[in-house]
Each structure stands twice: as C-alpha cells, then as structure tokens.
Design a protein around this nucleic acid. Structure first.
Length: 652
RNA sequence: GCUGUUGUAGCGUAGUGGUAGCGCAACGCCUUGGUAAGGCGUAGGUCGUGGGUUCAAUUCCCACCAACAGCACCA
C-alpha cells in the first residue's frame, strides 16, 4: 500500500482486476507495468469507455483498457492518423494548401483541402509515397493545449482560415488542442497514436473529389482526397478484393453483359429495356400486382400530362418546378399557350379519382394503387445507371383513410412489405422515421400528430427504428424501409408517408357517420420504390444469378450433335408450353463452348441434348454454379423446373 | 448543378500532327465434337459533337454533349 493515499488512484482493468497506481500515471506506463509486450503493442488507452492518448496523465479512478492493433478501436485510430498523415504530406508537397477537416469514414478516411490548383489523379501516387516516407521517419506525436484566441490568431496568420473558423465554432467548454507530428501540427480533438510509425503501411489513397465546405452547396468547394486504411496488409487486401467484387456486380455492367437494357444520349436518364430486362421487370411487376390485389388495393392509371393548375394546387409547382418536365401546347392563335407538366408523382391524380362522386366513411380505407410512370428532371450528377433516372415507375399507392385507420393501415402495409422483401430474397430490413424538414407545408399540430402516430405504429408492430431528423417530405413525415443486400450494402426502397396537406389543398373529403364532411388522411406508400431502381438492386444483390422465377432465360437446351436439333426444338416447345422461358442452342459449336457461354450468361439451367438424350427422350441437366450433371426424362425436367419456377406467392 | 477524370467498331482496349491497329463478340466456310473458349476466313470505325489553329487534326486549342467518381440533390 502506498503511504500517500491522496496520490494514488485505482484503475480497473478489463479482466476486472484492480490496481493502484500513482495519480498522473499514463496509459503507456500502465501498459509497461503489465508487460513489455503490451507496452510495445499499445496504441492508445480507453478510459471509462473513451479513447485517449497513451501519454495522457490519468488523474482519477477509472476503468482502463489498453488498446492494441488487435482491438476493433485500432481501426478508427489508424484511420484518423492516416487523415493527419495525408494532410501533412499534402502540406509538405504543396505549400500554401489549406487544411480543413479529415474524418474517419466507413473503410477509411478523407481530408478536405483548399487549394487553387486542382489535384491530379497522378498526384495521389506522389502523396501516398510521401505518407509512407513520413511513417518511415516515425515522427513523434505531441499534444498541446492552446488558448482559444491565440490558436485562432495563429492559424489565421498561417493563412488557415478554415481552421480559424473551426476554432471559433468549437463549444466554449472544449479544450483547443493542437497535435504535433514532428514539426507539422494540426488542430485536432485527438486522440492520436504516439508516432507516425504506429500507423503501419496498410493504407492506400483511393479517389479524388470535390466537396463543399461544411456540406453546403452554397459554400466554397474544396478538394477531397479519399483513402482506405487497415490494421495490416491482409485486411487491406480483403477490402480491395471486396471492392472488386462489388464492381463485378455493378448493374450497369451486368445489364450490358446479360442484354437487359441500355441507356443512350438521346434519352438521358431513361431506360431502353431489352427483351431480357423487360421480362425481369414484368415478372417483378406482376408479382407485386398480385400481392397488392390480394392486399385489397384497387389498381388505377392516371394521365401522364396534367395542367399546370393542378400542380399549383398540389404545391408541387411551388416546391419542385425546376425538377419537372413541362410541355407547352399551342391551342390556336386566339388562345394562350397551355402549360402541362409531365407527372413527377401520382398523388394528385389519385386524389382526382377519389374526388369523383361523393365518398362515404364506408368507402374508407380506399387503397388506390398505380404502377405510375413518373418523370423528374434529376440533376445530371445524380444519374446512375437505372438506379437514379429521370423516367421511372413507382409501385405507388395512396390510402385514403380516417385518422383512426392510420395505425392499422401502417401495420397492414408493413406486413405486406415484409412479405414482399422476404419473397424477393431479402431477409431483414431496417426502419427509419424521417421527421419534419424545413421548409414544409401544413400545420405544426398536424406534424406533431403525424410523427407520433408513425412512432406509435412502429411500437405496435414491434419494429425498432431510428430517427432520420429533418428528412421527411414537405407534406409529411415518413417511415423509410432499408434493405441490406448480399454484400452488406443498404438500399432505401419502401416508404409510407402521412399526408394531411394534399387532401386539403386538393379538397378531398368524405361524408362521416354523423353526416358532416371530413378530410381523409392520405398515406403515400411504395414497397419497391422505383421499379427501375429495384431491378438494379436485384441485379446487384444476386450478382445477375437470379432465382429461377426471376431469371429472364430460365433454361437453354444445348445440342451436342446436329442430329439432336429436332429433339431440342421439341424439348423447348414442351418447356415453353409449361411456362418455362427456354431457348434452344443448336449452333454449330462444341458443347464446351456452349456450356461456357451460357454459364457466363448466368442461365440457371443448361439442358444438354446429345444423340443419347434424343433417343431416350431425356436431358442432361446442369444447374448454374454446379458441375454435376443429372440425366432426367424430359417430362421430369419439365415438372422439376415448373415447380422451381413458380413465383414465391404462387407456390403450393 | 459543382469539382475532377474520360470519350477510338457491339464490348474491352493500343496508338499517332501525315485520314487507325489488337482481343472478344458478329458473319461465312470446315469441323458433329459429351459439359467452361476447335480451325480458317470475312466484314465492321467521318476516333462523342461543333468550331478554331495548321499545307495537313483522331492527335493541339475552345465550346458543347455524354459517361464515370465524389459532393450537393432525391417530392
């Protein structure tokens, strides 16, 4: 026991053991007292759950964990240090470049710089080499605490106006810390590794991009350099391999290879669906159509072009005019030109249908669904394959209901949506509640009610959700449904939105039980979102290897000898008669060639017909992804494929 | 929309101030071959579009269009 209790502190290690040590001991010293190996491996220390510098004096009792390269926290530390390293390298190579911020992101880090001259892709190699040189020099880290005004002036004098702005905006009670890595220094909250050598070499600069200061398009645009960093080369290799694999599933690449669709300059942002792609699309659409029909939706179709007046009433003209396609029609010399808008949404049209004839509370909830073709003038930079386009179709529906019906309708919808997602090969999804944005339409009390209703609905259904603050639509809050695909990427697809605004603006009403006229509430909802985008998601999720019911070409009957051609044609006809999308390949090619080609085209079943098969009326069945073959009678093949090709909602 | 990069045959690419090659695919002929590329041959390009510089532009310059990456946007 130490003689001086006032100078001792008690630290608790992760294994639960408690040690007494001198007040002011550092994580490094504690690590050394545990063992030389740990001291060497130590990167940082976690005090009561917070990451700190290894040389920070510990002043009071605390739970202490020494962080080494093996801990998951190491990644964050390494990446943060990499960001600094990048900034240091850039400032050494390109004096006069201002530093701004450099956070850790998923898989890596970035740093935003202000520099008049643009960085070139070739510069990345040079910068990365400089970074490696700084690591090799093993520059020691030093933490200093500055007076706020002095720090602000210091950075301003250096011409670092962004850093000065950051200091000015730091919370008043926060220490202004400046870290030195050798001679170079940067304003930073920390913590940092004790020297540049600890970063290791498993990093790589990946891309170059423009990015707005503080994420606001009104501000100056900075130059961002992205990098990835890992604990060791093996992890880096795994990451790079993962990126490659993601590239292989790119729907734009597969769309071309599998002859699904194309896009060309004369119709930017719109899809030319090829027969194969359109088969996939229709299979998906028909499936959803069956699901919503069973779910008591009524399908409708509304006009593509509607008068400006309607869009003014709905509020879209005011909120989205620049993003709408406009058509002007000259109706004759004496009349004014009439202005129509190509519909960017289906809701105003559905309200028009609702308003035909007087509706009773008995008609509610009324669920009007439409595979609504919409056009939006998306900014050029937003376009991406078939995932983000200017012409698309939503699996849209609007539920006209009473206030009391919102929660049951939401429950009903979530049930339907989870069925669909499961059928399509996605086992789980997450939910986000997007709350009121600015600017917005409608009364505050309606927003209060709408938000809490959605929250309540989630509790009732028993689904966890996170809040997406300020991300609601201009007319109401929404639930967003996010899918996770086969390689862990998230896709926001489904949505349900409460809307009190549009029924009022477009004057929708119904007769209540007491004979008075009331406003219905409108629920906007979609399961897939855009069919174009969802098809893209499916392509990437399955990497083009669709389950049989979705595959555009389900089977190819390939012949070995031309004597089997007649039988192959017969087999294809029989398969088609049974509803299988089959094709014959009777080309003058060897079977090896055909196997390779159809395997690359991702055809699920290859049915080989040689002389033997033709005589015995069988087929050699080879399933995509397997080298095994099985000889089955044609009739057996047909019944097997028919069973497997049934859409999930029609399986017995 | 902003920043950067790119644009050569259906796809993937090489190349140059003196009007373009290669591979795959396509087409034709030979080959009838038993489960991931058989052989030979043929055809296909106003080098994204429009201007400019030049004796000469696909190459150099400018503008526009489009694609790609990121940012911003996504009713």
């Amino acid at each position: 026991m130490s003689a001086d209790l006032a100078n001792d502190i008690r630290i608790t290690l992760p294994d639960g053991s408690v040690r007494t040590t001198t007040r002011g001991s550092t994580g490094a010293q504690i690590a050394a007292s545990i063992g030389a190996g740990l001291a060497k491996a130590a990167l940082a220390v976690k005090l009561d759950g917070e990451l700190k510098d290894l040389d920070l004096p510990i002043l009071s009792d605390a739970k202490v964990q020494i962080i080494t390269r093996k801990d998951p926290e190491a990644l964050e530390l390494i990446r943060h240090d990499c960001a600094h390293l990048l900034a240091q390298a850039v400032q050494e190579l390109y004096p006069g470049t201002q530093v701004t911020i450099g956070p850790v992101i998923e898989d890596g880090f970035y740093y935003d710089f202000a520099r008049n001259e643009p960085f070139r892709p070739e510069d990345l190699t040079v910068i990365e080499a400089k970074m490696r040189e700084l690591v090799a020099r093993d520059l020691p880290t030093k933490r200093t605490v500055w007076d706020r005004d002095k720090a602000a002036k210091h950075f301003l004098d250096l011409g670092e106006v962004y850093k000065a702005e950051i200091i000015r905006d730091l919370p008043k009670d926060e220490e202004v810390r400046v870290y030195y890595h050798g001679d170079w220094h940067d304003l930073c909250r920390g913590p940092h590794l004790m020297s540049t050598g600890k970063i290791g070499t498993a990093f790589k600069l990946t891309k170059l991009a423009g990015a707005y200061w503080r994420g606001d398009a009104k501000n100056a645009q900075l130059q961002r350099i992205y990098g990835t960093a890992w604990r060791d080369d093996k992890e880096l290799g795994v990451y790079l391999h993962r990126v490659e694999e993601a590239e292989k599933r790119d729907h734009r690449k597969l769309g071309r290879e599998m002859d699904l669709f194309h896009i060309q300059e004369e119709a930017v942002g719109q899809v030319f669906w090829h027969p194969n792609g359109w088969t996939l699309y229709r299979t998906l659409e028909n499936y959803v159509r069956r699901k919503i029909t069973k779910g008591d939706y009524r399908e409708v179709k509304t006009p593509q072009l509607m008068d400006r007046k309607l869009w003014e009433e709905s509020g879209h003209w005011e909120n989205y005019r620049p993003n709408m396609f406009i058509a002007e029609v000259d109706e004759g010399e004496h009349k004014e030109k009439r202005m129509l808008a190509v519909k960017p949404m289906n809701c105003p049209g559905h309200v028009q249908i609702f308003k035909q004839g007087l509706k009773s509370y008995r008609d509610l909830p009324l669920r009007l669904a439409e595979f609504g073709s919409c056009h939006r003038y998306e900014p050029s930079g937003a376009l991406h394959g078939i995932m983000r386009v200017r012409g698309f179709v939503q699996d849209d529906a609007h539920i006209f209901c009473t206030e009391e019906q919102i929660i049951p309708e939401t429950e009903r919808f979530v049930k339907l949506l989870s069925d669909v997602y499961r059928d399509l090969g996605f086992d789980t999804f997450s939910v986000k509640l997007a709350t009121r944005p600015t600017p917005r339409a409608g009364r505050e009390e309606d927003w209060d009610r709408a938000e809490s209703t959605l929250e309540l609905a989630c509790h009732r259904i028993g689904i966890p959700f996170t809040i997406n603050a300020g991300e609601g639509t201009f007319y109401g809050p929404k639930l967003e449904f996010v899918l996770r695909d086969a390689i862990g990427r998230d896709w926001q697809c489904g949505t349900i939105q409460i809307d009190y605004v549009l029924p009022e603006r477009l004057d929708a009403e119904y007769v209540a039980e007491d004979g008075t006229r009331k406003r219905p509430v409108m629920l906007h909802r979609a399961i897939l979102g855009s069919l174009e985008r969802f098809t893209g998601v499916l392509i990437e999720h399955f990497a083009g290897k669709f389950p049989l019911w979705l595959a555009p070409v389900q089977a190819v009957v390939a012949t070995i000898v031309s004597d089997a051609d007649g039988y192959a044609d017969e087999a294809v006809a029989a398969l088609r008669a049974a509803g299988i999308r089959a094709e014959a390949d009777t080309r003058n090619e060897k079977i090896n060639y055909k196997v390779r080609e159809h395997s690359l085209a991702k055809v699920p079943y290859l049915l080989v017909a040689g002389r033997r098969e033709a005589e015995q009326r069988t087929l050699a069945v080879r399933r995509l992804g397997s080298e095994a073959q099985e000889n089955l009678a044609l009739t057996e093949v047909i019944s097997m494929l028919t069973r497997e090709a049934a859409p999930p909602d029609l399986r017995v």
